[in-house]
């Protein structure tokens, strides 16, 4: 499914996020999430900032606007990165829509 910024994307509650020794780990705990068992994911800085803002209450466009206010980068770059990230997370059911 194509990522559309007018949609609201939210965190799957069966993905636990833990920060361990400076690494931000996303740990799927239920079956059917992610690629395989015993697999975790780490996020880069953009990923962490985006993840923290995701909510079923706001559209992805709102998330992008909030990131633009906080980070010194142009909107096109941020939009591309956020959509790229959400594509990866959505196809693994780590975020839902």
């Amino acid at each position: 499914m194509k990522i559309d910024i007018i949609n609201k994307y939210y965190k799957n509650k069966d993905v636990i996020v833990r920060e361990i020794e400076g690494e931000y780990l996303m740990i799927p705990i239920a079956s059917g999430i992610g690629d395989m068992e015993d697999e975790m994911y780490t996020l880069n800085e953009t990923g962490i900032a985006t993840w923290e803002k995701l909510s079923s209450e706001k559209t992805l466009e709102t998330v992008i606007d909030e990131l633009c206010e906080e980070y010194d980068a142009n909107k096109q770059e941020i939009t591309t990165d956020v959509i790229g990230l959400i594509e990866e997370l959505f196809k693994r059911k780590i975020v839902l829509c």
Partner: peptide, 17 residues
């Protein structure tokens, strides 16, 4: 589903961790 590392997220197995 492919297991390639992407620009945005990286796989991490518990044993590697």
């Amino acid at each position: 589903m492919e297991r390639n590392h992407s620009k945005y997220i990286a796989h991490q197995s518990l044993n590697n961790f």
